[in-house]
């Protein structure tokens, strides 16, 4: 039976690792989280295979045969060594996983002195992004433009109910809570266009509450910024864009009305 278990692991772990679980890796944080998940898979497969192996082996080997209707099983009440093992070994595993997860968290949330601040204001049912500039002014945009490889500090606010801000490619998410400002740190690492989603139920328009995140090379980002009017005037000229990814309605970041059928 141990052999079956080992074979099961030998098949299960590579299989689990090969599956493309995550969307494209788009940030430093995402890299660390994808690795953490791989470690979790490597830890989980043996446990699941163990339970399955014992269940299936027992069903195959110990099932009642005809003539055994009155027969009882072996009167085994316990085995102290086994019970200690299956208490201590999981404890060690848990301690290891928690420690590793903590280091990932700590690394992901490190502060960077030169980080760019972006304000994210959410309300039913849309996002607004603003970039503070000198003199108390800011650039306001419905689309979140970000320079590649520069750490960003998002300041999340809500004007009505709890919303959330999630970019799957960044693997980062935080709620926007009315009454307070919450802080989320991300360093994008890949040029591309990604969705930002609201992931906290906020009312009828929750399912359509999305915005577009466009990570562009730093030079293009600077030139975009310089062409923006301050304090929310409509952007001048064409903002730099990548070809939008297919199948993401709401990529323009406009609010959708909540009544009636959509596209």
């Amino acid at each position: 039976m141990v052999a079956i278990w080992v074979v099961g692991i030998a098949i299960g772990i590579p299989l689990a690792l090969i599956i493309p679980w995550f969307p494209t890796k788009g940030s430093l944080q995402a890299s660390n989280i994808h690795t953490l998940y791989d470690v979790l898979l490597i830890a989980s497969v043996p446990i699941f295979v163990l339970v399955e192996t014992v269940v299936l082996y027992s069903v195959w080997n110990f099932r009642m045969r005809p003539g055994e209707e009155e027969k009882d099983g072996a009167p085994i009440h316990g085995n102290t060594r086994l019970e200690v093992a299956w208490t201590v070994l999981p404890t060690i595993l848990i301690v290891g996983l928690c420690t590793y997860a903590y280091t990932v968290l700590h690394g992901n949330e490190k502060t960077h002195p030169g980080a760019m601040v972006v304000n994210v204001t959410e309300r039913q049912f849309g996002f607004e992004f603003s970039y503070p500039r000198t003199g108390g002014k800011q650039i306001v945009s419905p689309v979140l433009y970000l320079p590649n490889r520069r750490p960003v500090v998002f300041k999340l606010r809500s004007l009505d109910v709890i919303h959330s801000f999630f970019v799957p490619q960044f693997s980062e998410k935080l709620d926007a809570v009315p009454g307070i400002t919450t802080t989320l740190r991300v360093t994008p690492t890949r040029v591309g266009t990604y969705p930002a989603e609201c992931t906290e139920l906020c009312g009828a328009g929750h399912g359509l509450m999305r915005a577009s995140v466009q990570v562009v090379p730093d030079a293009r980002f600077q030139s975009w910024m310089s062409t923006q009017k301050l304090d929310g005037a409509p952007p001048v000229g064409n903002p730099p864009t990548q070809s939008s990814q297919p199948g993401i309605p709401g990529a323009t970041g406009n609010n959708h009305s909540t009544a009636g059928p959509s596209e």
Partner: peptide, 26 residues
Amino acid sequence: LTTFTLGGISGIMLAMIPFDIHVSQT
């Protein structure tokens, strides 16, 4: 025994904060 073990394993994964941040509310 099979399905609860799977649910428990996904639960351990969810305990790990960075992974939970990614999959929370999904």
